[in-house]
């Protein structure tokens, strides 16, 4: 297709009354890649997704999905995409299979083609055994998987998933993440939103970090992490006031930033492997006992903190 782009988002705007949910969002998703929108709750991820799936009209801007404008050719867009909504949307009184059958028909599938495809999808989402049970009786994880399965029925070119792993057990979460990778391996383009930086890091070819309706940074995982440099974050707890050892540590070559609260000291260091023994030596000399150490390699969490001054988790 055109220049290998599955989705081209061009300066989308959307407000709800006074709330500016999305203000000038642009990004491109290449065909065949997994692209993540990472941001805290309220960042505007769902609003962006809703516009891309033609549920919401943008107040300004446009987007092309597989070359079709979301504002001018919504039907073409809808045929090309599968949407996994953030809130589970299925019929609790119908069985898993009946749900898939109904939604398959809504995507224009019928008869034997539909039946075969339902079997395949049940296999993918791991609900073959439970297909005759009403969806309302499923666990949260099973509902999430069915919620995803519905969007796969018509083998869409692009699948858009809005926080598909929220509030489920680790096992179902693993299953879903593996599904996403497998679908992508088979050629599906995936637009994925999450507020878990581990998921974005594990899955994505490209990541856009979103906050307060805007994209604050985008690139590959490595590119983004470079924003905060290659420094590791080392957090140490000691058995006394931090002043006893802090000056000595700050003097060590390779230690950059140091912050302290009571007995917890956080350092940004160049290479923790080399610096860590020196820290211990200095502590022994100062007769200070270290009670715990954690080392964190640079991650998206740190990037978000660096860019917005706030933590990703609690938004």
């Amino acid at each position: 297709m055109n220049n290998g782009k599955a989705i081209e988002v061009q300066d989308l705007h959307r407000h709800f009354g006074d709330i500016k949910a999305v203000q000038g969002v642009s990004f491109d998703v290449r065909q065949g890649e997994i692209f993540s929108l990472l941001g805290p709750n309220g960042a505007g991820k769902s609003t962006t997704i809703s516009m891309l799936s033609c549920l919401l009209q943008p107040n300004a801007g446009d987007a092309l999905v597989m070359g079709h404008s979301i504002t001018r050719r919504p039907m073409e867009v809808k045929k090309a995409i599968g949407v996994v909504p953030q809130e589970i949307a299925l019929y609790p009184d119908l069985t898993a299979r009946e749900n898939l059958a109904f939604w398959g028909k809504m995507y224009g599938l019928r008869g034997k083609t539909l039946g075969r495809r339902i079997d395949q999808v049940l296999e993918i989402i791991g609900l073959v055994e439970q297909q005759k049970r009403p969806a309302g009786k499923f666990s949260g994880g099973m509902k999430r998987r069915l919620n995803i399965g519905i969007a796969l029925l018509h083998k869409p070119q692009v699948i858009i998933m809005d926080e598909p792993t929220v509030g489920i057990d680790p096992q179902s979460r693993r299953h879903i993440l593996d599904n996403v990778k497998e679908l992508n391996r088979q050629g599906m383009t995936v637009l994925y939103t999450t507020h878990y930086m581990e998921e974005a890091a594990e899955l994505s070819d490209h990541i856009a970090i979103m906050d307060q309706g805007q994209i604050v940074a985008s690139g590959t995982h490595d590119e983004l992490v470079k924003i905060v440099g290659k420094q590791d974050r080392v957090e140490l707890t000691i058995n006394t006031e931090s002043e006893r050892v802090l000056p000595a540590w700050q003097a060590i070559d390779g230690v950059h930033k140091a912050t302290a609260t009571d007995s917890i000291i956080t350092l940004l260091v160049d290479e923790s492997d080399r610096v860590l023994p020196r820290l211990f030596e200095a502590a022994i000399e100062a007769k200070v006992h270290i009670t715990s150490v954690t080392i964190q390699e640079p991650n998206l969490e740190a990037v978000f903190l660096h860019l917005t001054g706030r933590a990703l988790r609690d938004g």
Binding site: S53, C54, L55, M75, K78, K79, I81, V83, P85, E87, I88, A89, L90, Y91, P92, W103, M106, Y107, G108, I150
Partner: peptide, 14 residues
């Protein structure tokens, strides 16, 4: 309320 109406609107159904 249960979101299926919105979901229907994401399928190619007028």
């Amino acid at each position: 309320e249960i979101g299926t109406l919105a979901r229907l609107s994401t399928t190619p159904t007028p």
